[in-house]
């Protein structure tokens, strides 16, 4: 038995991101291609951050899930270009992030290059109460991809998925 490419995608839609289990690896936008090849599957993955420790766990969970579904030989290729961007996170996944307590990345451009001086915090809505009276506590949260914020209205801390 072997899986077709569309069956493989179905399987991957159910593989959670190890750090943020409410969204899948496909919703995160890191699975770029799935190709049926030589009786097995070839999966192309683009890492989020260069040093993200979850990258290898993700590759392994992709292989495990596909093999468990009967895919035979699965190989995962890491592809750098084009570089991953938070724009690849699907819209439904952004809502899931918000419901999970993580403010999703804004659709606007990430930090500029010419004048990397100081971050002017945008008015970010608290994922819990919706208030925009929020302040940034730290540019880096529990993982490289998130910043740490605090809501001045409900006084709860929350994380923000930084746009890159």
């Amino acid at each position: 038995m072997m899986l077709t490419e569309s069956q493989a995608w179905e399987v991957l839609h159910a593989v959670p991101d190890p750090e943020i289990p409410v969204i899948s690896v496909t919703e995160l936008g890191i699975v770029r291609e799935v190709l049926a090849r030589d009786g097995g599957l070839h999966v192309v993955v683009t890492p989020t951050y260069s040093g993200c420790p979850a990258t290898e766990v993700i590759s392994q969970s992709i292989v495990d899930a596909l093999v468990a579904a009967g895919a035979g030989v699965v190989e995962v290729e890491t592809r750098l270009a084009p570089a991953w961007t938070t724009d690849w996170i699907t819209e439904p996944a952004k809502e899931k992030l918000r419901a999970y307590g993580i403010a999703p990345p804004g659709g606007d451009a990430p930090v500029g290059g010419a004048q990397p001086i100081r971050f002017v915090p945008r008015k970010l809505a608290c994922p819990r109460c919706g208030s925009t009276d929020t302040t940034r506590l730290s540019q880096f949260g529990s993982t490289a991809c998130k910043a740490l914020y605090r809501c001045q209205s409900c006084l709860e801390p929350f994380e923000y998925f930084k746009p890159i």
């Binding site: 750098l80 270009a81 570089a83 001086i117 890159i164």
Partner: peptide, 27 residues
Amino acid sequence: DSELAAIAAKSIKEARYHAQHAGDWVV
């Protein structure tokens, strides 16, 4: 070198955050 260009495209996004973070603290 297309591989180096790909690494640059990935790394620049990270370096900008590092520059911004450090710039904040220097000020």
